[in-house]
Design a protein around this nucleic acid. Structure first.
Length: 676
DNA sequence: CGTCTCCAGGTTTTT
DNA sequence: CCTGGAGACG
């Protein structure tokens, strides 16, 4: 049976219209659980069946996970190989554009992509050169400021003007090191399109059908990128009630812009919810109706009432965690459910600690997304830094990370000398090293011994340039790790714990293993070092742990990470004032911020299919002190008749605490093997 | 001049 | 636990 024979019977009338309206500008308002993914994938499959070439279709998403899921499902539906269909995240699409034409903007195509850690390092580095006093440098806040400036969310004014010079230095640094930051991946393609209309035209000639998922989370830049590319056939799918990324520049007002910018927009609303019980949906509607300034919609479901929403008020976060663990065990037995049918949602990653403790104690398998990701681990970053420098010698930030790791006698003063040469000649550190190596002895600013150390380092990089071409990347990386004796370095670094050193070495082996799997995957045609580096910088936390490994495990995650997912049973932990809504958000956001926090709570509630269990602690440890907590204001917004309160149960004895902690530490930060 | 040791602090959400 | 910085030591 081929796709499309029975479209009408497989879809409701609105869905059918959304799938079959392929021409013109279309705005699809898709409420939570209304079968959005189904509509998008059917829509593309339908276009392909109609004979539209794959190459003319561009689908933009926010996460790699969403992109992958989308193409997998289209493949399944159509039974075709997808060779020319572009399903990509905005950022990955930006990278593709830049690799092609960034030379027109003055970068070279082997540019590095800087993540937040690299950005902070560059800010610190630039600040040092410009002699900013260290305590005036809150690199975290300044990084955010720079991001806001670059994307037009903030302007220079009396308050932040002091950082203007630093910003310019930062930008010069990026260019000198042949690097771009995350914002550049959107901002630079726009610049390219505007300054070089012929480049834009080539993309417009190719892509005739554009689709954007999670449209409520587009930033102004992303919108502009889409607007520049889009001719007339453009479909955007979103839900203003689920806009939860405004702190990253998302603005659901883009929905309004869309209606203005594209004439004759066809608006389609998907309001039938296939996911949740009436009770859960009524609770969600009750909460979200407190927001002003939203597109009015009425979600309905034909799924029956189901159980009331359960609210429990445990003494503290340990009791909360035990309650969740025990409830899971109980429900598993009672309703014959498997562990992977549960989702435990929280506002902040720090909440996971208590929950993990209790799950370990109760032998409940779980996967956790969030916290430190695999690629943020020091040992992984070290290896990757080598690869980046091999790919782009001028990448000073990554070069500085590894120049003396493992120790090779290049310390502070040598680096200072290198910096001086680099500044005098206006070149990167790599060039400065070349200059020093070839300088005659009497003009050399460093001793012969130091010079030898520098040469030893550059030799490693030169010797591994064979990674840039040919096959067998993972083998070559393995050889590099051996060459630099990284394992010995780890042993020396962690003298107290050989176990820690071994653990870290195992992480590196996992990295190499995943690299091997990646290069052996026949779907990946380009297995060059460049392709690999592209791939991993844009991976996000939740792209890592998918697949078989997580089968049969309880899903613990932040509410942000849960968007787009659903679980038969959902726990929301920490529904307290100060956490949900979060006090940081309240401090610097006012009413607008409360509305976003409310949407976040709405997202959490609408993840649940059958049962929703919410807990709100009476006390919670915050940093060193235990503070008293009040239930979240959002709980009061759930219609009372839908709710059942639990009696508080007795607190668990404290004598197990020690053992619990030991258990936890033993299993703390297990390696998560990335799947590429 | 580089390395080792001791101490402080840990950021809401993340492409 | 884990990282980065300051200051002492070889």
């Amino acid at each position: 049976m081929s796709f499309g024979e029975n479209l009408k019977s497989e879809l409701n009338p609105e869905q059918y219209k959304a799938v079959t309206t392929t021409d013109g500008a279309i705005l699809i308002i898709a409420g939570a659980g209304s079968g959005k993914t189904r509509v998008i994938t059917y829509r593309i499959a339908h276009m392909l069946e109609k004979g539209i070439p794959q190459s003319q279709i561009l689908a933009l998403t926010f996460t790699n996970k969403a992109a992958k899921e989308m193409s997998d499902r289209i493949k399944e539906l159509t039974g075709r190989k997808l060779q020319n269909l572009t399903v990509s995240t905005f950022h990955a699409f930006g990278v593709r554009i830049l690799r092609q034409d960034i030379d027109k903007l003055g970068w070279r195509p082997n540019f590095s992509i800087y993540d937040e850690t690299d950005r902070s390092a560059l800010i610190k580095e630039t600040g040092r050169e410009l002699r900013f006093t260290p305590d005036a440098l809150d690199v975290y806040a300044i990084g955010n400021l720079f991001s806001d400036i670059k994307t037009g969310r903030r302007n220079w004014n009396g308050d932040n003007d002091a950082y203007r010079e630093l910003y310019e230095g930062y930008q010069e640094g990026l260019k000198l090191y042949n690097a771009v930051d995350f914002d550049d991946l959107i901002v630079l393609p726009i610049r390219l399109f505007k300054e070089h209309p012929e480049v834009l035209q080539s993309y417009k000639d190719r892509y005739k059908y554009i689709m954007v998922d999670e449209f409520q989370d587009t930033s102004h830049q992303q919108y502009e990128m889409m607007h520049l590319l889009a001719d007339k056939n453009v479909a955007v799918v979103g839900d203003d009630d689920q806009s939860i990324y405004s702190w990253r520049g998302a603005d659901y007002q883009n929905i309004v812009n869309f209606e203005k910018d594209f004439p004759n927009v066809t608006e389609i609303r998907l309001e039938q919810n296939y996911r949740s019980t009436e009770t859960i949906l009524a609770a969600a509607n009750g909460v979200i109706s407190h927001n002003t300034n939203r597109k009015d919609k009425s979600l309905w479901s034909g799924n029956g009432n189901g159980r009331p929403i359960e609210i429990y008020m445990p003494e503290n976060e340990a009791a909360e965690a035990d309650f969740i663990a025990e409830s899971i065990l109980g429900i598993c037995a009672e309703e014959k459910r498997k562990y992977d049918e549960f989702g435990v949602l929280m506002r902040a990653n720090t909440q996971s600690r208590a929950i993990e403790e209790s799950f370990l104690e109760n032998n409940i398998p779980y996967t956790i997304s969030g916290g430190m990701s695999f690629f943020e681990r020091k040992e992984i970053k070290d290896v990757i830094s080598y690869l980046r420098v091999i790919a782009n010698h001028d990448d000073d930030i990554n070069l500085l990370r590894i120049i003396n790791t493992p120790r090779r006698g290049i310390g502070r003063s040598t680096i200072e000398a290198l910096n001086k040469v680099a500044a005098d000649l206006s070149v990167s550190l790599w060039e400065a090293m070349q200059a020093i190596i070839s300088a005659p002895e009497e003009q050399c600013p460093v001793t012969e011994a130091t010079k030898a150390n520098i040469e030893a380092f550059t030799a490693i990089i030169e010797n591994n340039k064979n990674m840039l071409s040919g096959k067998g990347l993972s083998k070559k990386v393995h050889a590099l790790v051996d060459e630099i004796n990284y394992f010995d370095y780890l042993i020396a670094e962690y003298p107290k714990s050989e176990k820690a050193a071994r653990f870290k070495y195992m992480n590196i082996e996992s990295l190499i293993k995943s690299m091997e799997m990646w290069e052996n995957n026949p779907e990946h045609e380009d297995t060059s070092l460049y392709a690999y580096l592209n791939r991993i910088t844009l991976l996000s936390r939740d792209d890592l742990d998918d697949g078989e490994e997580d089968k049969g495990k309880v899903n613990v995650m932040t509410v942000h990470a849960s968007k787009g997912l659903e679980f038969p049973v959902v726990f929301i932990a920490g529904a307290e004032e100060g956490l949900m809504p979060h006090m940081r958000a309240l401090q610097d956001g006012g009413d607008v911020a409360v509305e976003e926090e409310r949407r976040l709570f709405y997202v959490a509630v609408t993840r649940a299919q059958n049962r929703l269990i919410i807990s709100s602690c009476l006390h919670r440890r915050r940093q060193q002190a235990t503070v008293e907590c009040e239930p979240s204001r959002f709980l009061d917004e759930i219609p009372e008749n839908l709710v059942k309160y639990h009696e508080p149960s007795k607190e668990l004895g404290a004598e197990d605490a020690h053992e619990m902690l030991q258990n936890m530490l033993k299993n703390f930060s297990r390696p998560r093997v990335p799947k590429l």
